[in-house]
Amino acid sequence: MVIVLSLVSALSYGISDFLGGIFAKRASAWPVAVVGQSTSAVCALTALALFPGSPATPDLVWGLLAGSGGGVGVGFLYRGLSTARMGVVAPISAIGAALLPVAAGLISGERPSLLAFIGIVAAFPAIVLISRVPASEESGTTTASGIGDGALAGLGFGVLFVCLDRVSDGGALTGLAASQVTSVVTVIAVATAMGAPWLPRDRFAARAVVMGPLGFTAQGAFLFATQQGLLSVVSVISSLYPASTVLLAALLLREKILAWQAVGLALAATAVTLVALA
């Protein structure tokens, strides 16, 4: 079940990023992030109202911290994708999203089996290969800017994953709702600090409402997976989300899967198989 939930998280994140990249190219990244995160928050608050659980104060605190990281991650990821820097932003953000939780898990005493550890190691080059695009498809913006967006996005997602892992079983939906609401506030705060417009004013930003249930599903599946399995394993599988983004682009936008991306997809499948067999 841990592997299934982790894959659901990766798939949901991948679809959400695919849509976010499309919307953010036609509207500013920040309004897209605000709309997407707001609808995710509505989903989380609705679930909390239906199933309140038995939360403790730390669950709320960890949820607030998770949301701060998630807001930073989403905002800078969409900003990077909106300027077509996927080949720089996507692998850095995904590796950052996996590396920090893996380090936190190992430091806290997690010891994956040998097979699982090999799968974890194989996942990192898989992420890079899957996310890589030809230089001719990159925009004219500087590589340094792409690296900065990717690093900030990866750091934000890494914090999100680590903090969600700290939420208790009884306070899962409380932590999730706190995370989603805080992420909206964080996106607005960061956009305001950067002098970027964040109010949704056109139909492309408004269409980001479809991303809400995806974001809620992605985070919820990740949270419940970490309650049953190791953070170091779950975070790596969830961070393979660029695979679903690439596959969707191939199926819906008729984008060609390049040779190195095919190798990356094969490595990703190997990584998941090894972890599942562990």
Score class of each variant (00 low, 15 high):
244 S>G: 06
90 A>V: 14
87 G>Q: 05
217 T>I: 04
30 W>P: 02
232 S>F: 01
9 S>A: 06
197 P>G: 11
278 A>P: 00
119 G>S: 02
155 L>A: 09
250 A>L: 12
35 V>E: 05
257 I>F: 14
215 G>W: 11
59 D>N: 03
126 A>E: 00
202 D>M: 06
72 V>W: 04
19 L>A: 14
214 L>R: 05
62 W>F: 15
156 G>F: 01
186 T>P: 08
111 R>L: 02
165 D>I: 02
223 L>E: 14
146 G>Q: 07
131 S>Y: 07
107 I>W: 03
274 L>E: 07
60 L>W: 15
140 G>Y: 13
100 L>Q: 04
31 P>F: 06
73 G>A: 13
131 S>E: 06
255 E>D: 14
81 L>I: 13
177 A>Q: 01
135 A>R: 15
133 V>N: 03
273 T>R: 08
115 L>N: 07
270 T>H: 03
18 F>H: 12
113 S>C: 06
23 F>L: 08
180 Q>R: 14
62 W>P: 10
33 A>W: 09
107 I>P: 00
164 L>D: 01
225 A>F: 04
231 L>S: 09
130 I>N: 14
29 A>V: 02
190 V>I: 07
65 L>A: 13
264 G>E: 13
66 A>E: 09
260 W>T: 07
124 F>Q: 02
203 R>N: 00
199 L>Q: 10
4 V>E: 15
216 F>T: 00
117 F>D: 00
275 V>D: 09
126 A>H: 00
274 L>P: 05
99 L>R: 00
268 A>L: 02
184 V>I: 09
185 V>D: 02
55 P>D: 15
165 D>V: 03
108 S>Y: 02
28 S>L: 09
233 V>L: 08
143 T>Q: 10
61 V>L: 12
78 Y>F: 10
172 A>S: 14
67 G>D: 04
126 A>T: 00
207 R>L: 12
114 L>Y: 08
32 V>I: 05
105 G>I: 01
154 G>V: 01
273 T>H: 06
211 M>A: 13
63 G>C: 08
269 A>Q: 02
52 P>C: 04
135 A>L: 12
203 R>C: 01
71 G>N: 08
249 A>T: 05
109 G>H: 09
94 A>R: 03
243 A>N: 00
216 F>S: 03
270 T>P: 04
269 A>C: 03
219 Q>T: 06
116 A>N: 02
23 F>P: 01
97 A>Q: 05
32 V>H: 04
218 A>H: 05
104 A>P: 01
160 L>K: 10
198 W>E: 06
29 A>E: 09
176 L>V: 05
65 L>S: 01
158 G>M: 13
232 S>H: 01
